[in-house]
Nucleic acid binder design. Structure first.
Lengths: 219, 219
DNA sequence: ATGGAAATATTGTTGAACAATATTGACATT
DNA sequence: AATGTCAATATTGTTCAACAATATTTCCAT
């Protein structure tokens, strides 16, 4: 908790901190989060910690079992399928009705450039980050605070899935060029085509993810 | 807290209870919710109550001001606009890709019938309930647990807006026939047309809502 | 080994405490 | 009467300790 987080309530800061541990893979799916251990670790009271746990449970990152404690959510095939269903709805929808001059398009273009650069440098983590920025920008096309917040939640959940994979980084690389094609279509005002292309993209990504997850589960 | 709520954590039960108070209008927008008063009222500890408050704050129903307490969210024009943006994305999207045999279509059809019946009986609250069921069923067309949950949150927020209106019930009545048309299109497999119709519906509803809100704000 | 009962640990919830911040009220000045 | 200041009061933010209820582990008898 060394960051300069302002006067936010302790529970919120805690939740944010634990969320970073979750999406960075420092806490593994299925792991139990003991109240005693974590309140000790973060030097906060059990009560404050419990508030944070509740927040994260509502986000789907933790699972709560009565009288047994909270556990890091174990992503399932079903959750992956559901998450991609949401992504198709939100991302394709945002693209379809996108305004050609929307500032988010510039962000998308820059994210594509960044992704290509990182890929050429063999920096797979960098490719993943650029990809994330790209998709967040797509949601921003819809100019909705609530959709943006919701997508953040979905996105965190998806990153939990990546934690289960062996070499998650390579998953992103094949998609850099598709991103390029999509933003190009948008720049040309072909939003319907961009949306269609994104649907193909997401279906492919979903299959890849499911396949990787299947392999990981067998091991 | 007389209901038969199972072994759910106290904070969750509390949050649910307070949520019903919020959407039923028993707590007014802007009102401050004192920790002392409410923990007394519900006969729970301040700690448990605070957990519930945090949950509802995350849902957008309460607003949290540091060192000042929690207040019932005051819906703004901006929030109404955002909420309808979300609804267009979710509901139109769900309709567009709806499968003609989806069980939710039957629910929609029944909700329309119920709405017509209630309207003829002059039961405006009943019309509102039927309308709510109708739209929830539309989201169910997308078969996504996460979208369903998200829509519940949006829906609760919208009901908070209705609390600001003078005669909120009449708002729903004009829409019963549009619902009829939409579900009829769906039954005929014309999902694109249904989606288009819904967009018109939502734009109209949004304008009506904004106008009503404007009137209410002046008073 | 296996089943079950006692011992132990963990969560669920409460109540009291105290620091930090906000609100109120009294008082003096203009 | 209006306004600014400062003390008094109330509220939130957070911690701690306690205890009941439920799980888990240990240990013993079979």
């Amino acid at each position: 908790m060394t960051e300069d987080e302002e006067g936010l309530p302790l529970a919120d800061r805690l939740a944010r901190h634990i969320r970073t541990l979750l999406i960075s893979g420092e806490l593994s799916p299925g792991q139990r989060l003991s109240e005693a251990a974590f309140s000790e670790r973060f030097d906060v009271s059990r009560n404050s910690l419990r508030e944070a746990f509740r927040l994260l449970t509502k986000d789907g990152l933790l699972r709560h079992e009565a009288n047994r404690g909270v556990f890091v959510t174990v992503p399932s095939m079903a959750s992956v399928i559901d998450i991609y269903r949401v992504r198709r709805m939100l991302e394709c929808g945002a693209l379809r009705q996108a305004w050609q001059q929307h500032p988010a398009i510039r962000v998308m273009r820059e994210a594509v450039a960044e992704g290509q650069k990182k890929r050429n440098a063999g920096d797979w983590v960098g490719v993943g980050s650029a990809n994330m920025i790209f998709h967040t920008a797509i949601i921003d096309l819809s100019d909705s605070a609530r959709l943006t917040e919701f997508y953040e939640r979905i996105s965190a959940e998806l990153r939990l899935c990546f934690g289960l994979l062996n070499d998650p980084e390579h998953l992103h690389s094949p998609f850099v060029d598709m991103n390029d094609a999509i933003v190009t279509l948008l720049e040309q005002g072909k939003s319907a085509e961009a949306a269609a292309q994104m649907e193909t993209y997401l279906n492919l990504a979903e299959r890849t993810m499911l396949k990787a997850l299947e392999r990981a589960e067998q091991a």
